[in-house]
């Protein structure tokens, strides 16, 4: 699916903006290969694949992709990108990465479903106890399709163990209902965290 492909291409490109280690007869060298700075990185983008986004968000993403395509397109074939082109390219790629928000959506499907859940909540009224949500899709331990939802409680909604319990009790049915409406074929696993919790590097869930 084109959305999956675009997602993977952007994630891969984001990791390639740093130096690569090249092994040769005289040892390892660090080189900037700029393999990511090419219009092909956004080649699988189709605006129609993002019809689940509100018009404004879709337009913003399309504009970011167009901008990156233009910057990458200026790099002549057969020569390395100039430092100026690399910096422009990084800024343009970062614009796309910011919109896809890989920290909050672990995969393309959870981006699609997560956005729909969030919009459903905003349409009704965003729960004031809730700071933000994070999502991941996949199969659970029994092999059934699942959607994991991490609900980050605001500081006030999580300032004590009892407050966390009260917040969880209030929010769980709301979040489960929204997730069920958006993805009835997936079992929603809802967990609660606090915005005050320390960030755990490398642990998505």
């Amino acid at each position: 699916m084109a959305l999956d492909e675009f997602w993977r291409d952007i994630r891969r490109a984001g990791r390639q903006t740093g130096p690569s280690t090249i092994s040769g007869p005289s040892g390892d060298r660090q080189m900037y290969l700029d393999l990511w700075l090419t219009p092909a990185v956004v080649g699988s983008f189709r605006e129609d694949d993002f019809s689940f986004l509100p018009a404004e968000e879709r337009a913003e993403l399309t504009a970011a992709v167009t901008h990156f395509r233009q910057v990458a397109g200026r790099v002549a074939a057969g020569r390395p990108a100039t430092p100026g082109e690399v910096e422009q390219g990084k800024a343009a790629l970062l614009g796309i990465v910011r919109l896809l928000d890989f920290d909050r959506y672990q995969d393309a499907e959870s981006f699609r479903l997560g956005k729909k859940v969030e919009h459903r909540l905003r349409d009704r009224e965003w729960p004031p106890l809730l700071d933000h949500l994070r999502f991941e899709s996949g199969s659970d331990h029994a092999g059934f399709p699942a959607l994991w939802v991490w609900a980050y409680l605001s500081a006030a909604a999580s300032d004590s163990d009892e407050q966390v319990k009260r917040s969880a009790g209030l929010l769980r049915p709301i979040l489960r209902e929204a997730a069920r409406e958006v993805a009835p074929e997936r079992f929603p696993y809802v967990s609660f965290r606090s915005v005050s919790d320390p960030v755990v590097e490398g642990a998505s869930r």
Binding site: S158, V164, K165, A168, R172, S194
Partner: peptide, 9 residues
Amino acid sequence: AEVNGFIEQ
């Protein structure tokens, strides 16, 4: 906080 939520459930 997460475990609190599970216990509450």
